[in-house]
Design a protein around this nucleic acid. Structure first.
Length: 935
RNA sequence: GCCGGUGUGGCGAAAUGGCAGACGCACAGGACUUAAAAUCCUGGGGCCUUAAAAAGCCGUGUGGGUUCAAGUCCCACCACCGGCACCA
């Protein structure tokens, strides 16, 4: 790295202030009711202000997974942005909550444990220590007293507690809210109380009834158990998450994985699909992010339609029933010429004819071997098999064949479709391949081929004795046919979502154990039961071996004493996924030491905004929830959807007071390597923040990451650019300090490096700095800077704010006399971006007192800009002829339209362009521009 | 295929519909220096012309349009990045 002389002694300044802030607890945020010590800078700033009377600002970073690789340059990007805003809001007078913590459960620590036998806690603690050191060396203004660690029993105690809230709740479709399971009406109870016996069980035994009731409750809980296929990797001896499986092989090691059904815990997030979708309209997230969530939720409106079975392979009672399909295009029902069931559909066994059964079985076997990935990858060529059975199209009574094909998914809709090859791309491909009839029921616009035309048009060939939708445009046709189907009890309007319930269990060691035990009913069936809240936290057992058992049981199953309880019940051996801890950490920060609740209600209402005083400091509305959340796009759906889901459940149950957790959210853009490629070890283009810090210091590092470009943009790293902002900080330093004392300092430092901190104090202020009154030009430069920096911070435009600071410094470097008042205000503006150098220079400006007693820059008031100072006496006005720039004229600031027009016409540079032409029109914008239209 | 985003000097970028390229990097020339580093000053989109300049013309992915005026608004396209992807 090419670099000569140090621009300024950041290596002494930065640790000095980091220590100072830590000792003073400068950035501690105060909860309602807390008494602030009189000597704390917060108390000095807000002399009569109790925390609860101040407007709050909650600014949150996505907490990191403390990996062994240490901090990446992407982490400080978002962290610097939030830190700048946190410091800015403090200067404006807000009570700012800006916390940090660790999302510390996770696979790497567990895999390291499997390899070495070292407990994941040890690895995790080491990694956290390293992350914390790195983050602290950047001088962020976090309130470390609120630090959370998801693997701390005092933390995950409440993660388990929230799980119990889910477990003990059901979603009431009447109120559209979660409610305690005790409020769930149980049908047999109701029937009995109404004097009606449940059919077929006049004298049901209490035990049997109890079992039924339990099964009914379990079918409604927000946390429930099901058999679901998971990825099992034989070589790794573990189960893998979807994200850990790439092209049918494990991401680590590249070993084959297979689907295997296992008992799994699920969370009923689908119950919240509509609210998760609708409430996106109430929060300020980027359009692209909202769109991603909308797509993930995948709402589509349509109809369910019943097709009766005409010819069936067996004589089962099932054959009397209908096959239900979901369609978004009920208007094309007359064009349904065949049906397709997913290969896994329950009715396939029932309807397949003897002749077709071997082919059907073979196809199903083949499909079951394929992963979802293969199924979609091989999507080019459609495959499928005829079942031999027929159904009746309910609108035209035609007999249509029933096929099975893997392009129909069992997990969406009803797992069965009506195929309309005329107007659906996939059905068209399939019908073409298997020579099935294709008919036209939608008339496309003039000149468009109707074959496979899928957009809206006019219905044709769509009438029977009872109903006709011919001639209707698609939206009306849909409405009319759906109403008709409902009237005939053949179908009904339905909404479907792509969103699936959340698979919530992992077969891992390093995660939160479920607070659940399994018991045997008298009949021998196992059932689950929640632990009481008093049993929390439920700690995982100590183990020597962190691998799953040879028969595929989770690692916790190895701890026999832990699993088998004295009363004969057994513990749940699955653990929760890493998402669990990150679903609610922003709530724990509010009251992170509370031993009685996940968060105290007062702290919750204050910081989440529902009871916070409205801000009189800023022209904006009080925001419900976290005021600003910054993090990477990689969490656009999963984390941000899961957290919103949990928050809504807690809201329904009265534990939190806002329906949404994160009011405003910004995604920082990825930082690429110097070669404009994604940073990766294999490419060798990874930038280590520690190296940059050692070379240029934290302030330059912070400044550079913000100066690179807009926060949300993807942008390549350029270490030369760091040198640029580093030079800028050097100019700031030289503006303030006396050259001779600086030279003496350096010589002293070379002789006795150990005396650095002491020598730092010997650097004197530059001679030109005085209490003199600023000149109008100086005030203008300062106030232009205040205006620009303030507006840019409000708009999160850090790069242009920094350029305004540079413009100011470039001008101030030319001043012989430097008024202290101007320099002070400048330091307040600089402080959020480069806090260490700003604090050091601020302390030097207060030399009358010892630096320890100087008012803290961290709580200095943000300067207000005075528009009157920015008014110019003369203005430079561009003059255009026919929209092309011809001259720039100088006019007095108050020049009237007529004066401007006259001055423009008088310009020697403009005249030649008006020669021989007639002036048609003159556009004069006073103070801005003159445009002469001539022809 | 669908959805979202982005295209501006050698590079990162800036620009309420109103002087395109602020600020910074890299580069070139100069000052200081025995020399270097550091620092300071100056220059710079392209074309045309010229000894040098001035003036002029062109210029924000491409092609149209709206407007007195378009990087900015509208229409159609192209390229790149991100997400989803047989979701009926």
């Amino acid at each position: 790295m090419a670099s000569g002389r140090k621009q300024y002694p950041f290596h002494l300044i930065e640790p000095k202030w980091q220590r100072h802030w830590a000792q003073q607890e400068t950035f501690r945020a105060w909860n309602p009711g807390e008494s602030v010590p009189a000597q704390h800078p917060f108390a000095q700033r807000h002399a009569n202000g109790k925390p609860e009377h101040l407007p709050k600002f909650y600014i949150l970073d996505m907490f990191p997974y403390p990996s062994g690789a240490g901090l990446h340059v992407g982490h400080p990007e978002g962290y610097t942005a939030t830190d700048i805003l946190a410091r800015y809001r403090r200067a404006l007078g807000y009570n700012v909550l800006h916390p940090m913590g660790w999302d510390a459960f996770g696979l790497p620590a567990e895999q390291y444990a499997i390899k070495t036998g070292q407990h994941p806690r040890t690895t995790t603690e080491q990694n956290i220590a390293n992350f914390k050191r790195q983050i602290q060396s950047l001088g962020f203004s976090y309130d470390w007293s609120r630090e959370v660690d998801t693997t701390d029993p005092q933390y995950f105690r409440w993660t388990q507690w929230i799980f119990l809230q889910l477990y003990n709740s059901w979603f009431n479709p009447q109120t559209n809210k979660a409610a305690p399971i005790s409020t769930l009406p149980y049908l047999p109870d109701l029937q009995r109380s109404a004097g009606v016996s449940p059919p077929g069980s006049p004298g049901a035994a209490p035990a049997e009834l109890e079992q039924k009731r339990r099964a009914y409750c379990d079918s409604k809980r927000l946390a429930y158990v099901t058999e679901a296929p998971v990825w099992w990797c034989e070589q790794l001896g573990t189960v893998l998450a979807n994200e850990e499986v790439v092209d049918g092989r494990s991401e680590v090691g590249g070993f084959p994985v297979v689907r295997r059904p296992m008992r799994q815990w699920m969370l009923r997030i689908t119950a919240y699909a509509e609210r998760l979708l609708q409430d996106l309209n109430t929060i300020e997230w980027s359009d692209s992010l909202k769109e991603m969530q909308r797509n993930w939720i995948g709402r589509s409106e349509g109809a369910e339609v019943d097709f009766s079975i005409a010819e069936c392979g067996t004589r089962s009672a099932e054959c009397e029933k209908a096959i239900r399909v979901f369609t978004t295009r009920p208007d094309t029902l007359f064009g349904a010429t065949y049906m397709v069931l997913a290969p896994e559909h329950k009715l396939v066994d029932v309807i397949a004819t003897a002749a077709q059964r071997p082919a059907v079985e073979a196809y199903r076997a083949e499909v079951s071997k394929k992963s979802d990935l293969e199924r979609t990858e091989l999507a080019k060529e459609k495959t499928g098999v005829f079942t031999g059975a027929y159904a009746i199209n309910p609108v035209n009574r035609e007999k249509i064949p029933i096929w099975i094909a893997d392009y129909v998914l069992i997990s969406y809709g009803t797992g069965a479709i009506m195929a309309v090859p005329g107007h659906d791309t996939r059905d068209f491909e399939f019908a073409t391949k298997f020579k099935l009839p294709i008919v036209k029921v939608v008339e496309p616009p003039e000149g468009v081929d109707w074959h496979g035309y899928v957009d809206d048009g006019i219905s044709v060939n769509s009438a029977n004795a009872d109903i006709s939708i011919d001639g209707l445009p698609t939206p009306e046709a849909k409405r009319k046919i759906t109403a008709w189907l409902e009237s005939k009890h053949l179908g009904k309007k339905t909404i479907n979502y792509k969103l699936r319930d959340w698979l919530f269990s992992r077969q891992r060691y390093w995660g939160e154990p479920f607070p659940i035990v399994w018991k045997q009913s008298p009949g021998g069936q196992p059932y689950h039961e929640a632990l009481p809240e008093s049993a929390l936290p439920l700690l995982p057992p100590p183990l020597d071996d962190y691998k799953p058992t040879p028969d595929g049981q989770p690692p916790l199953a190895r701890a026999k004493d832990w699993v088998n309880l004295p009363n004969g019940s057994k513990r749940e051996t699955n653990t929760m996924p890493q998402w669990a801890g990150s679903c609610w950490y922003y709530l724990r920060y509010l009251d992170s030491h509370n031993g009685h609740a996940f968060c105290g209600p007062e702290a919750e209402r204050y910081w989440m905004g529902s009871h916070a005083p409205r801000s009189t400091l800023h022209a904006e509305r009080a925001t419900p929830g976290v005021d600003l959340y910054v993090g990477g796009t990689e969490h656009a759906v999963l984390h941000l959807l899961y957290a919103r889901f949990w928050h809504k459940v807690l809201y329904d149950l009265g534990h939190v007071s806002t329906p949404e957790p994160f009011f405003k959210l910004v995604n920082q853009g990825l930082i690429l390597g110097e070669d404009s490629q994604k940073m990766s070890k294999s490419r060798g283009n990874v930038i280590n923040p520690d190296d940059i810090l050692a070379e240029y210091g934290a302030d330059a590092f912070r400044l550079y990451e913000m100066f690179m470009g807009p926060l949300e943009m993807v942008k390549p790293w350029n270490t030369r650019g760091v040198e640029g902002v580093y030079r800028f900080l050097g100019r700031v330093w030289r503006l303030f300090v006396d050259e001779q004392s600086e030279t003496d300092f350096e010589q002293g430092l070379t002789a006795e490096p150990a005396r650095g901190p002491e020598l730092l104090g010997s650097i004197r202020l530059a001679a030109g700095i005085s209490e003199a009154l600023p000149t109008p030009a100086q005030l203008k430069a300062l106030h232009a800077c205040i205006k620009k920096v303030t507006e840019d911070l409000d708009g999160l435009r850090f790069n242009t704010a920094i350029s305004a600071l540079m413009v100011f410094i470039n001008e101030a470097m030319t001043w012989a006399a430097k008024p202290v008042s101007v320099l002070r205000d400048f330091l307040v503006l600089l402080q959020p971006f480069a806090p260490h150098i700003a604090e050091e220079l601020w302390a030097k400006l207060h030399t009358t007192r010892s630096p320890e007693h100087a008012p803290s820059l961290a709580y200095a008031s943000w300067p207000k800009f005075d528009p009157a100072l920015l008014v110019e006496d003369t203005l430079e006005i561009p003059v255009q002829v026919n929209g092309k720039l011809r001259d720039v004229i100088k006019v007095p600031a108050g020049a009237s339209q007529a004066e401007l027009e006259a001055a423009a016409k008088a310009s020697e540079k403009v005249k030649p362009f008006l020669e021989g032409k007639t002036i048609r029109k003159v556009i004069v914008l006073p103070g801005r521009l003159v445009n002469i239209v001539a022809a």
